[in-house]
Nucleic acid binder design. Structure first.
Length: 547
RNA sequence: GGCCCCGUCGUCUAGUGGCCCAGGACGCCGCCCUCUCAAGGCGGUAACGCCGGUUCGACUCCGGUCGGGGCUACCA
């Protein structure tokens, strides 16, 4: 064991003791049953959608119990920190309305960024050293690799433990010698779990679990050759979650196997253990197997994808909450968003994210909104992600409103043609002459293989005696019906089906020609309403393009 | 290799010994509605990983096995 003087010489002289921090961060004064949760992402890039998933859970559990939900940035791996990541986190959390209820500005348990808490960790590292719960390790990377190789050769389990842990019981003189030489070192936890026993603990989602006790002497403080002396995740977790007075740690189940280590750490530090809820990660189908959604391979793994595509936050929230608690997926959206998440209702298995399902949910949700509300949201979205469209819509706000008002609002079956704001351009863009590209080729595939000469004939006949939409829009369509009959189309779909060889198509095909000419797409709302919105001049310009 | 977690239709799931030859939702397929696109309505497709055991009876309990995932980093 190292002398107290030597241990103290390793730390700043004015480093406070644990009592100082205990007083600085007192137990919280909250009602009984209030949960204090934290969302703690690493700023290594765009936020993962799984992060939003966990944050939703954190926010819900804390909010409903009258507790606090805080955001803690885990940047102990300085090499991987990405510029601007923290700002993106904030934007993403704002978008999904899960901003923390406690942060550097509003909370008194900060700082909430780990790299700013270096001194706090040092206090507890020194404390562990003083109690002989930790020791200095001067092993080089090569030496570590060599140990692993020898373990493999001997058929021993890998790790830094027991007799393999070279520095665990190294004599004090040896340590002093290396220190004097200025050699870099890490601080390792002296694991008490060498006896090879089992350990039991309870997880709020999975119930009672057991595992082999930890016996690895995990690194708790990274190398002294780093400019900023920071702890590893394990140690920071114990210190921060204790000092921030967290009551429930919600995290991915990849941490499950670290629980024995964490429990030892809490014990050695003299902290009361904290409850855990390990949630299954969001998965992705990959060939015949499934794997965790990967930020590198899967665009939909990043929250940026949902924001750039313009999925309404409510739809994503609803989808994610349904994944967390299956019964919420059966509820209508407003009820589901208002219902509490229940830890006991979580499924222990990892769910596959299903973008098709999200699309369906989102389309349903958007369909409940008025044209004006949609226009406003499209506008906001476009300002950020499609500036050209934003400019066009801004120049003609009435047109956008009129386009989105068709078959929406107070109708029994509102249109469901928008799944996300990015759909506006392909689905409604044709309303704007700046975006619309007239269809000039009569043989265009969009006409469904109809004879080119016939396409031109439909167009010229229609243009030749065009009747503008009047008071009664339902009258407008009769000109297509007449034209269709005159040009030999079947009067109804039924008649066409009964005798397909007798006609070039039914009235349906005839209207499709007009539709494609008017909109450039095979799917659109009622043609009479579109014509009314477009104006006669524009209608005729588009029809004549193909003649 | 060792340890841990998980396993019902393609997907999300309901199901805690008889209500289940397994229910719902999304998808897919078909039909209907319709003067045109969507939408909508109706119907269909499709699963308890496998093998044993316990029991009058197992999706439900037990054991094994297979499969998937995770950890085994000075990454989180």
């Amino acid at each position: 064991m190292l002398s107290p003087e030597l241990i103290d010489s390793l730390f700043p002289e004015d480093l406070p003791g644990p009592d100082h921090w205990e007083e600085r961060y007192p137990p919280r004064d909250l009602p009984a049953g209030a949960e204090v949760t934290r969302f703690s992402p690493s700023p290594t890039g765009y936020l993962h959608i799984g992060g939003v998933y966990v944050a939703i859970i954190d926010a819900d559990l804390a909010g409903r119990s009258g507790g606090r939900y805080l955001l803690r940035i885990e940047d102990t791996d300085q090499a991987r920190v990405t510029e601007g990541a923290v700002e993106q986190f904030a934007d993403a959390l704002t978008y999904f309305t899960i901003s923390p209820t406690e942060d550097d500005l509003s909370g008194s348990y900060g700082p909430y960024v780990q790299s700013s808490r270096a001194g706090i960790y040092l206090t507890y590292v020194r404390e562990l050293l003083r109690g002989d719960h930790a020791y200095l390790d001067f092993s080089s990377k090569a030496e570590l690799e060599e140990i692993t190789a020898r373990q493999r050769a001997a058929g021993a389990l890998p790790g830094y433990y027991g007799k393999w842990a070279t520095w665990r019981d190294a004599p004090g003189e040896q340590v002093e010698e290396r220190l004097a030489a200025g050699d870099p070192y890490v601080v390792r936890f002296r694991s008490p779990g060498l006896s090879g026993g089992r350990i039991s603990f309870t997880d709020a989602i999975r119930g009672d679990l057991s595992a082999d006790d930890n016996r690895n002497d995990a690194v708790i403080l990274k190398s002294s050759d780093q400019p900023l002396r920071l702890p590893t995740y394990h140690f920071a977790h114990a210190v921060d979650d204790h000092l921030m007075r967290i009551t429930l740690v919600v995290r991915g189940d990849e941490w499950l196997s670290s629980v024995p280590l964490h429990l030892q750490l809490f014990d050695a530090l003299g902290f009361d253990p904290i409850r855990y809820a390990h949630v299954a990660p969001l998965m992705k189908q990959d060939g015949s197997s499934r794997r965790k959604l990967s930020k590198r391979k899967d665009p939909e793994a990043s929250v940026g994808y949902y924001i750039e595509q313009g999925y309404p936050a409510e739809a994503v929230q609803y989808y994610l909450r349904g994944l967390a608690n299956g019964r919420l997926a059966e509820l209508p959206l407003p009820e589901a968003l208002a219902a509490p998440l229940q830890l006991s209702d979580f499924n222990a298995a990892g769910a596959l994210v299903d973008l098709v399902k999200l699309d369906d949910i989102s389309a349903d949700y958007i369909a409940t909104q008025s044209g004006a509300a949609i226009a406003a949201q499209v506008s906001t979205w476009a300002t950020a992600f499609d500036p050209e469209l934003a400019g066009i819509v801004e120049a003609e706000p009435d047109l956008a409103q009129r386009a989105l008002a068709i078959e929406r609002g107070d109708v029994p079956n509102p249109r469901k043609d928008l799944r996300k704001w990015a759909d506006f351009r392909p689905v409604y863009g044709y309303f704007f002459p700046q975006i619309f590209e007239p269809v000039a080729d009569a043989a265009d595939a969009r006409f469904g293989g109809l004879d080119a000469a016939l396409v031109r004939q439909v167009a010229s006949t229609f243009a030749g005696r065009y009747q503008p939409p009047g008071e009664d829009l339902s009258q407008w369509f009769s000109q297509i019906r007449e034209l269709a009959t005159q040009l030999g189309f079947a009067p109804s779909n039924k008649a066409y089906k009964q005798n397909p060889d007798a006609y070039p198509g039914s009235i349906r095909e005839a209207s499709q020609v007009i539709r494609v000419l008017l909109t450039g797409t095979p799917h659109s709302p009622d043609l009479a309403q579109i014509s009314a919105a477009l104006g006669d001049e524009e209608v005729l310009r588009r029809i004549r393009a193909v003649i």
